[in-house]
Nucleic acid binder design. Structure first.
Lengths: 223, 223
DNA sequence: TTTTTGCATTCTGCATACAAAATGCAGCCA
DNA sequence: TGGCTGCATTTTGTATGCAGAATGCAAAAA
């Protein structure tokens, strides 16, 4: 018997989470804006029950804040929080780097190299949006190649918050060039499976990203 | 005018999350067990709406698994997942250790020392439950003293999953003694604010914990 | 004119009702 | 006897209804 793809319908609350998250990350739902249930229900074409479930999930991701008896608002992008998040992500990526060197197959590393190549093309073209997209994919690919699913999940969750800041922060040409150069070093360490070097490079890369975002958001913050 | 404490009622779904989480962590809701909505509604004395919101949140914590159209089951305690989680927690605690040395006030460190003292007492008494409780408090206090709220949150979330395994895994006398000794070293490095040493000690401590839990659960796992 | 107070409206929080999917069992057929 | 099929029951997924809290406005009081 031939295996055929099973029919699958996603639960509405999942769909709603994804849609709302995109809206928030892209800034179409701005920080501080209230989430009016009636309105969103109409826009998404669903009822309040799955919508409310979705909002609760976004609250755990930190994208919205729940005000008792007053609904939910899109959470503010606080530079300090972004800084703290990037600090954690830096540590996680450094760990991922070590694990990748130890566990990842050559095939996976080749896939990452291919992504890197495309990202470099975007950079050469001056395609910022395409660059961001591939940059994201590379970092996600690294944490996924670590073979540690918990690590990958945790990273993804933290990432949603930071993405918003990336949308808001503007990238200087110098920083952009430097970031691409850093990525090239990262790729080389990855292909040599030089765990110690890779770990350091990834931690530094995230630290630079942190500095850039904070500078662009015009604020200093600890941790 | 004198400020008085505001009247506050917790939302039902929050209460439900806490209650269910406790039940799962303590094993009263066993891995693999189905969460029957009708039943749980009766037990908690609430309706399905807040209960379902709670279940969705527990799913993001990884304590339950959602089966489309078939409800939710308490997720299995897979040694590999525990291993992966402890690996991440080890890295996070190491980071926390560094930050604590840099940022924490003397008062906070004294508080942790006090907790440590009580934990040693529990150990001397052979009070395993009390030991676990204080052990938990110490580790949480360290990540909280880091001043990085995102780090603390992430750590807490991962912790819920591991707590279950700790309940199931039994601790040998030797490992128990060793763990207390490690804690003493940790305290000393903390009080000296020796970041590098503290970082290493915490990472090692979690690695040992990992080895112990895995051994006790009778399994090997990577990452 | 400014502040306060009461009321109408709107919104959220929770409960319940309805629809669709899954489960279990009995009967039927091989 | 063994397995499949169809129906009744149970359970989940979604929508809707109801009560209470918050908000805004207007009228009254200072």
């Amino acid at each position: 018997m031939q295996a055929i793809a099973p029919i699958s319908r996603r639960p509405l609350h999942e769909e709603a989470v994804d849609r709302l998250r995109d809206q928030i990350v892209q800034g179409r739902l701005a920080p501080g804006e209230r989430l009016n249930e009636r309105e969103l229900c109409q826009q998404l074409g669903i009822s309040r029950t799955p919508l409310r479930e979705a909002i609760k999930l976004l609250a755990t991701e930190g994208l919205v804040e729940l005000l008792p008896n007053r609904g939910a608002v899109v959470s503010a992008v606080e530079p300090q929080r972004i800084a703290q998040t990037l600090t954690v992500m830096g540590t996680l990526e450094a760990l991922a780097g070590e694990l990748v060197c130890a566990n990842a197959g050559d095939e996976e590393i080749r896939r990452i190299r291919a992504l890197h190549g495309r990202m470099v093309t975007m950079h050469a073209r001056g395609d910022l949006a395409g660059y961001f997209r591939h940059n994201q994919m590379i970092h996600l690919a690294i944490v996924e190649a670590s073979g540690n699913a918990v690590l990958a999940n945790t990273y993804r969750q933290l990432n949603a918050n930071v993405k918003r800041a990336r949308y808001m922060a503007n990238l200087s040409r110098e920083r952009w060039d430097a970031a691409v150069a850093e990525h090239e070093s990262i790729m080389q360490a990855l292909e040599k499976r030089d765990a110690a070097k890779l770990k350091r490079l990834l931690a530094d890369h995230l630290a630079h990203k942190l500095a850039q975002v904070l500078k662009s958001l015009g604020a200093r913050a600890a941790a």
